[in-house]
Amino acid sequence: MRALFAFLAGGLFGAGLLVSGMTDTTKVQGWLDIFGAWDPTLAFVLGGAILPMLVAWRVAASRTAAVLGTPIPPKPEPLLDRRLIGGSVLFGLGWALAGLCPGPAMASLSYGGMQGLIFFCAMVAGMLIWHLAQRQLLAKAT
């Protein structure tokens, strides 16, 4: 059951990314290009995506657990640390250079050509590099 609904959610997410045009890197780069031919499409996508989630969080607040029994994830502590800030700067930099973030990079794997596949592999490598670097830092700290 969990896997079935996870598949449905992933599929709807992917279809939404395709329909919204967010797998087209020119639209994303156009949104970030405030000094050029600015493209506001991404604001419609983000706004459209937040609307159902505003309702969903209201519904979630009135329940202790999700339908399949998992507790609703608690709200994270409002902690603004160097990790959050540094990571977001690094992500924003890469996002602008290619015009892809993790969701669209995966949604477009089947039609993004060789460059799309190379981006995905580099992204996975980046995730592993951070994981190993973090373990090194932790080992040094203790």
Partner: peptide
């Protein structure tokens, strides 16, 4: 299309939150 796709993305996130709790 952006708004429509956005609603689908938000719908997917709502489904994953309310059914799977993720």
């Amino acid at each position: 299309y952006g708004l429509l796709g956005g609603l689908m993305i938000g719908g997917a996130a709502a489904l994953f939150l309310l059914v799977n709790g993720r």
